[in-house]
């Protein structure tokens, strides 16, 4: 078998553009998912029973069904109720829906790990409640959550390849297009694999060093 990368490498702006879209989906879904997760974690901790039930049901559903099924569901269900979305938006909503549940669990565990004794220590030193949150709770929680959050982000980045199924021209989608135009499938997908590795590698390194620097989190990059 002879490999011929040349025609594909000439298309690098097209492929990099695809990688950029993948990264956009991952970052946006992660950011919105964090917000939903925070809200859900707060409800689970402080909310009334009824609200806690709903959040629990959401988390159980979202973490126990395939993400692909969730996106399909949205993709077909939303137009039925009169909402038409671009493939990008539909995929983003699906990914956010899924991420919110995982990020809720991560944040809840983080908040549960705060040491009550440190809070009391801060109290007797004369800290006010906002000062306790700012100086004691948040730094601790961020540090504890950092490794699982980084992990989740990587998983989500790779998960964006599902978007190609719905016609979003991200990295996997564009690779598929090139492969069918040139019939150089093995080469095309090798390049995609290398690009995915590069993205996750860079993200892992950036996150690990940020974590080490900001939170003294002991994160193994590999």
């Amino acid at each position: 078998m002879t490999l011929n990368f040349q025609p594909l490498l000439e298309q690098w702006p097209y492929l990099l553009g695809g990688a950029w879209i993948s990264l956009q989906i991952a970052v946006l879904a992660f950011a919105f998912g964090m917000l939903i997760g925070l809200l859900c974690a707060a409800v689970l901790r402080y909310g009334p029973r009824f609200a806690r039930r709903i959040v629990s049901a959401y988390v159980i559903f979202a973490t126990n069904t395939p993400q692909l099924v969730q996106i399909y569901f949205l993709f077909f269900a939303l137009p039925e109720v009169g909402v038409t979305l671009s493939p990008f938006t539909a995929v983003l909503i699906g990914a956010t829906f899924n991420a919110g549940a995982y990020l809720c669990e991560i944040q809840r565990a983080g908040f549960d790990s705060v040491r009550q004794m440190e809070i009391e220590a801060a109290e007797v030193l004369g800290f006010s409640t906002p000062q306790i949150i700012r100086h004691v709770i948040l730094p601790h929680v961020l540090k504890v959550m950092f490794p699982p959050l980084s992990n989740q982000f990587i998983v989500m980045t790779l998960g964006t390849s599902m978007a190609s199924i719905f016609g979003v021209e991200e990295l996997t989608g564009r690779t598929y297009n090139l492969s069918s135009q040139t019939y150089l499938s093995v080469e095309a997908f090798s390049i995609a694999a290398v690009l995915y590795i590069a993205i996750t590698l860079i993200a892992t390194l950036v996150l690990a060093s940020a974590g080490r620097y900001l939170f003294r989190a002991k994160i193994k990059a590999f």
Binding site: R115, M117, E118, E120, A121, A122, V124, L125, G126, H135, V136, P139, H140, K143, F215, R216
Partner: peptide, 15 residues
């Protein structure tokens, strides 16, 4: 700030 206390369990800020 006028009265300070130290407990049995040295609850330092771990971070």
């Amino acid at each position: 700030s006028s009265i300070a206390i130290v407990f049995q369990q040295y609850n330092l800020f771990q971070n």
